Simulated scan of single mutants.
Amino acid sequence: MKILITAETYPPDVNGSAQFARRLAHGMLERGHEVHVAAPMPTHGPSRVMADDGVQEHRFRSHHAFTHPYFRLCFPWEIAREVSHLFDEVQPDVVHVQCHYILGRLVIHEAVRRGVRVVGTNHFIPENIEPFLPFPDWFIKGYRKVSWWDIARVYGRCDVITAPTPLAVRTMVDNGVADRAVAVSNGIDAGHYEAAADEDVRHPDHPVVLFCGRLAVEKNVNELIEAIALIPRAKNVHAEIVGEGEQRERLVRLAHERGVADRVQFLGFLTDEELRRAYLRADVFCQPGTAELQSLVTLEAMSASTPVVLANARALPHLAEEGRNGYLFTPGDPADLAAKLQLVLDASPEQQRAMGAHSRAMVSQHSFTRTLDTFERIYGGANR
C-alpha cells in the first residue's frame, strides 16, 4: 500500500505522539509498504521533501506557536494547495492522521474529497495545550468545550477512529466523538528494554526514583521533588529526571528550596541506549502526570522490569496493579507519593524483583508487532 501518515508533531519534537508516528512510519516501511509522512517543517523555511531511511517526509511551511516551546502551526492559506499537490504526486491508498489541527484537517478534507480511506488516531486532550494558553479560567473552560466539538467534527469524517487506550476512547465518546472509536495501543518493542543475559547493570549505592518525559506543567514533576524532600534523608533516596522542557528552571529552583538539590539529578535528553540503562538501574519509575492517554515511557520502564508508582489519573491506573507491580498515588498529594515510593523502596529485594517481573508481564499486551498488525488490517479495510 501507499500510506500517508500525517502528524502535527513529529521528530525532532520529543513527545509520545511524535515518537509513535515515526515508529509507525518505519514499521510499515519494514513491512514492504511505501510510506510518506506529512508534517510541519521543524524550522523556518519553505516546504520541502526530506528522506528518512526510506520514509519520504513532506515538510510543510510552518510558524512557531509563541506560547509553546516547540509546537509549530501550518497556516492553511500557505499550504492548502501544496496538500492537494501532495495527493496528486503520492496518490495514497490510505491516510492516517494523528491530530485534528490545521494540517490534519486539510489532509482529511482532501482525502475525503478524493475518496481515499482515512484513519484518524487521537493522541490529544485539551489539557495538553491549556497550560500554554495565557487566558483566564472562563476562557479555558470555553476552549475545552469548543476543542472537543472540533475534534468530534474533524474525526467524524474518518472511516475509522482510534485512540491508544480504552480510557482514551471513552473520553472521546463522552465528549461527543462518534461512538465507533476503537482502542489500538501505541505499542512497544518490549524486548529492547530488557537486560541482556550477560549484561552488567551497575546500580548506584542509593535508591533511585526515575522520571522520564517533557518537563511540562501537566507532568507535575514538582510533586516528585516535593516527595523526595518528604522521605527521610537517612534513606538517601535520589531522583533522576530525564527530559527537557519549559519547567526545568522552576524545578531546579524547587529542588534547591526543598534542600534536595544534591539528590535530584537533571539528566536532560538521553540517547536510546542511555535511557534503556536508566530504566534498568532505577529501583522505581514514577509518572506523576495527569494528562496521559497511555504513557509510553511508563510502558518502557515496565518493559525493563521496573516497579512503578503512578498518578491515579487518566490512563495510568491501567498500568499499576496495587502491590503487584507498584502503586497509585493521589495527584496533588506529595505526601501520598512519598509514602507509595517508600512502600516499593522498603520492600525486600525479592519483593522488588517480583514487582518488576509483574510489570514486564503486563506489557505483553502492548506489543508493537500487534499494533502494526492491527493498523495494517485497518488500512486494508477492517474497522478494528
Rank of each mutant, 00 (worst) to 15 (best):
R384C: 15
R370V: 13
R324K: 11
E30W: 09
L86T: 06
V169L: 10
N222F: 00
R384Q: 14
A183M: 15
A152Q: 06
V264N: 00
R157G: 15
P76I: 10
L293R: 04
G243F: 08
L224E: 00
R384M: 14
K340E: 14
A335K: 11
C158H: 10
A195C: 06
T9G: 04
F139N: 13
F20Q: 07
D88H: 11
V237E: 00
H26L: 13
I5T: 06
M302H: 12
E257R: 00
T330Q: 09
N312E: 07
V363E: 01
I5Y: 04
V118N: 14
Y101I: 11
S359P: 01
A51E: 08
D346V: 08
A195G: 08
T9S: 09
G356W: 03
M172Y: 01
D272F: 09
H100K: 10
I231G: 01
K219I: 00
R353Q: 14
S305H: 11
D336F: 05
T171N: 13
V116W: 06
L4C: 13
E34Y: 10
H96S: 12
T271Y: 03
P288T: 01
F139D: 02
I129Y: 08
V363L: 07
V242K: 12
A239N: 02
M355T: 04
R250I: 02
H318A: 09
E240T: 02
T271W: 03
L341A: 12
A196Y: 12
V154H: 03
V308W: 03
K145R: 13
V217N: 12
D373E: 13
Q19D: 11
N383V: 07
R250G: 07
A291D: 14
A338C: 13
F66L: 09
V35E: 05
F132K: 01
V217F: 14
I108A: 04
H203C: 08
H96T: 08
Y193E: 10
H36M: 11
V146F: 07
P136S: 07
P46I: 06
N128M: 15
M41H: 10
F139K: 04
W149R: 12
T9P: 09
F368R: 10
R248E: 11
Q91D: 03
A181R: 04
E274K: 15
L341I: 12
E218N: 09
